[in-house]
Amino acid sequence: MSEHLATVQWQRQQAQFIDNCYSREHTWQFDGGLTVAASASPQVVPAAYTNAACVDPEEAFVASLASCHMLWFLAIAAQHQFVVDTYCDRASGKLAKDAAGHLAITQVRLRPQITFAGEAQPSAQQIAQMHEAAHHRCFLANSVKAKIVIDTAAPKAASPPGSDC
């Protein structure tokens, strides 16, 4: 149906490498021209070899699932003639051992906060049904083993720096 491309690029620079003391900073390049600074998670790799200011694979995984869900939710809301003004999700992922004892993102929790405009306001039941439909249509949610929880009643979690929702 479609193919999606990304280029991941890393260079050793001056590190010896075989002593395991090398930078994990790298770049992700996407076909639209965007380059993203990436690194290993500072929760996984010692701080001396990572950069917390970069996006790490675990964050990107969570963001990808949250983004996919949001895009489907917006499409479904539009189909039902509900006008979405804002959609903000402070999603989180839990890194833990899975049933086989391997480290994995075992759960992703979505916390969408949505405001609607206009005369037609969806009921709580309609919102829940749209989230359920979005979850089942999300290509990424259909591709992973992690449990995905959609928590629309959760209190607002702390915002990452730069977030305004």
Score class of each variant (00 low, 15 high):
G118K: 04
C21Y: 05
A78P: 01
D31Q: 12
L71G: 03
S2K: 13
F61M: 09
S163R: 11
I114F: 03
S39N: 02
Q113T: 09
I127R: 06
A38L: 00
L74T: 04
S143N: 14
A75E: 05
Q14S: 15
A146P: 09
L140V: 15
V44S: 05
D31T: 14
V45L: 03
A96K: 09
A66H: 04
Q79R: 15
R12N: 10
P46V: 07
W10P: 10
L95P: 03
Q14E: 12
G32I: 02
D85V: 13
A47Q: 07
R12D: 07
V44F: 09
K145R: 12
W10F: 11
P155K: 10
A96P: 03
H80T: 04
A38T: 02
A153M: 08
M1Q: 14
Q14L: 11
A15R: 04
E25F: 01
L95M: 14
T86D: 06
A146F: 07
K94T: 15
A157I: 06
I148N: 06
V45G: 00
F82G: 02
L103A: 06
H136D: 05
P112L: 00
D151C: 02
A141F: 06
P122D: 05
A6Q: 08
Q125V: 04
S163F: 15
Q29D: 08
A66S: 13
E132D: 12
C21V: 07
Q43E: 14
S67A: 15
I150S: 01
A60L: 12
G93L: 00
R111T: 12
A78I: 02
R111H: 10
I76G: 00
H26D: 04
A124W: 05
A134F: 00
V144N: 06
C138K: 00
